[in-house]
């Protein structure tokens, strides 16, 4: 090894490890909270991305999910309720090199912060927005949220939730997110694979993570992702593969001219089978996938849509001076139309 190489090896930072990301203090979510699994997935995924620790920024709003930045040893900003995408926008535009992640919840992103959420997606802002959806307000102890299902009894809906829920993935697709995915806290492998894919995306990426709140909404997703239901009620999206599910993948979703329907695998024909293509420019199938839960069909997990178009920071770089440049005031003032008053 030459001296130069030795020097370079000594100067280069050691690769990021899981230990580097561990928090200084203790993690204070309730025992059994789904957030622990999500945190683990991040600790495992970030070291594999090849970025140094100081390039990561986690920005959050308010709620149980939004305590996340305190529990991962990167740069972190725990902002105010609903505003994380707006703060993250400023962070990203001021330094487009950063990997900026927004950690939010169903109340934070879809209720008080709904406007910032949709506009960050619409602009294709290069942010990774991870929504921990537990369908309840946890930090304020059990009021219904904008994803609580119609009719559910909560502290503020003793006779059942009177309003209809948002579908986060449908909303994100409609708002123009260029990557839309769904995963859940109990499947560590799927969670990690999803986050890793999101990390590679340039543009507005949105992930809905189904997350169990064992205290105020325990088991809310069990009838879909519970061990005994998962095989029949979840379809894992795999690029290029048909949408198969059920025992021995015996069922498949096909297009029936009006939407989708489940049929035995043997009945599927090349004309009707849908091979998953998240990168397809046309969002029609992505919307159908987003609608499946509503239709009582198996719920798709994975990347519903992933397209590439210029992100906001890229467009800004085309339109203005390079990010981080400083004005030359003499030149600027020199250009003003003006007149000179001479010494008398």
């Amino acid at each position: 090894m030459s001296t130069l190489e030795e020097y370079a090896a000594a100067a280069a930072p050691a690769p990021l490890t899981r230990e580097d990301l561990l928090p200084e203090g203790e993690v204070k979510w309730c025992p059994g909270c789904g957030n622990y699994g999500i945190l683990t997935a991040f600790q495992k995924v970030l070291p594999g991305l090849g970025l140094p620790r100081e390039q990561f920024v986690f920005v959050s709003g308010i709620g149980c999910s939004s305590r996340f930045p305190y529990y991962i040893n990167t740069f972190g900003f725990h902002t105010i309720h609903g505003r994380a995408p707006a703060v993250a926008t400023g962070i990203k535009l001021a330094n487009p090199e950063l990997s900026v992640w927004v950690i939010t919840g169903d109340g934070d992103a879809l209720s008080i912060g709904g406007n910032h959420f949709i506009h960050a997606l619409r602009r294709n802002m290069d942010l990774k927005i991870i929504l921990f959806n537990n369908r309840i307000y946890g930090l304020t102890k059990g009021q219904y949220s904008p994803t609580s299902q119609f009719g559910v009894t909560t502290k503020t809906s003793p006779l059942g939730v009177p309003d209809y829920p948002f579908s986060p993935v449908r909303l994100a697709l409609a708002a123009g997110a260029t990557l839309v995915a769904r995963t859940f806290d109990a499947d560590q492998n799927h969670l990690q694979a999803t986050l890793a894919a999101v990390a590679q995306h340039k543009g507005a990426a949105f992930v809905e993570v189904w997350q169990n709140c064992p205290v105020f909404n325990d088991g809310v997703f069990d009838d879909i992702i519970g061990k005994s239901f998962r095989q029949e009620k979840v379809v894992y999206l795999q690029e290029g593969e048909p949408l198969r599910f059920g025992q021995d993948k015996g069922q498949v979703l096909i297009a029936n001219g009006r939407g989708m329907q489940a049929v035995p695998w043997e009945q599927a024909t090349p004309d009707t089978v849908i091979r998953h293509d998240p990168d397809h420019a046309d969002a029609t199938v992505a919307f159908m996938l987003a609608d499946m839960e509503e239709q009582g069909l198996p719920v798709p997990m994975g990347i519903l849509r992933r397209v590439r178009k210029p992100s906001y920071d890229e467009i800004m770089a085309d339109q203005g001076a390079p990010a981080g440049s400083v004005p030359d005031i003499s030149a600027l003032l020199g250009r003003l139309e003006g007149w000179t008053i001479a010494e008398r």
């Binding site: 920005v59 900003f77 902002t79 105010i80 505003r83 995408p85 707006a86 703060v87 993250a88 926008t89 400023g90 962070i91 990203k92 535009l93 001021a94 330094n95 950063l98 406007n115 910032h116 506009h119 800004m316 339109q319 203005g320 001076a321 990010a323 440049s325 400083v326 004005p327 030359d328 030149a331 600027l332």
Partner: peptide, 28 residues
Amino acid sequence: LRQDGVTVFQAEDEIAAVCSAIGASYSG
């Protein structure tokens, strides 16, 4: 003056406008 070294962000609302400025300040 965008070519002269200023980043201008027309936000979706007043709150996003100030929050983006705070984010930019945090970023230096």
